[in-house]
């Protein structure tokens, strides 16, 4: 039985060592594990012009301008993290989920001081899942505007059924 106990302690010690090692490695590399940098980081210390960075943030409401350069659509929009904003220029088709207020990750290079030339734009959706009708009802009730931020606390809507939402939108004709 002592041999079994010794084996148990040996296993526990090995797992503990390994866990500590992994934690230390991850801590050391955590800046590289980060998938994107924020606009305030870019503004505070702009990376070199030739280095590809991933810029993550929210598309500022009212800042999106879409044009066409020949066949390719060109979009210009501001990306913010609440503290600083960077103007992103992108030639190409934006993802379906792209909209004002959406979180996006733009991959490209920084053009100091506040511009960013993107070669690729990814939409980052949040962890909120709600039916279209519920979102409509929240918008109609004036509780949420998706262009300006995340939805209200989940308790206030996660029990709302599609039927409830339809009823709410029907009884409150366009308040905004």
């Amino acid at each position: 039985m002592t041999r079994k106990t010794r084996r148990l302690w040996l296993v526990i010690a090995c797992v503990a060592c390994l866990g500590t090692a992994a934690a230390l490695i991850l801590r050391a590399f955590s800046s590289d594990i980060v998938f994107f940098v924020t606009p305030s980081q870019v503004v505070a210390s702009p990376p070199p012009k030739d280095r590809t960075v991933k810029l993550g943030g929210m598309v500022v409401a009212g800042s999106v301008h879409r044009e066409r350069k020949g066949e390719t659509p060109v979009a210009t929009f501001n990306v913010t993290d609440g503290q600083a904003a960077v103007t992103v220029h992108y030639e190409g088709i934006l993802p379906d989920l792209f909209r004002e207020g959406q979180s996006v990750v733009a991959i490209g290079t920084v053009q100091p001081p506040h511009d960013f030339a993107a070669t690729e734009v990814l939409a980052k959706h949040d962890e909120t899942y709600m039916p279209k009708e519920v979102a409509e009802a929240l918008k109609k009730a004036g509780k949420w505007d998706p262009r300006f931020g995340p939805p209200p606390s989940a308790e206030s809507w996660n029990q709302m059924t599609v039927q409830d939402a339809r009823k709410n939108t029907a009884t409150q004709p366009a308040t905004n």
Partner: peptide, 11 residues
């Protein structure tokens, strides 16, 4: 810790 940020009709 918090309420699920998912409609119960999907949960």
């Amino acid at each position: 810790t918090g309420a699920p940020t998912m409609s119960s009709s999907m949960l």
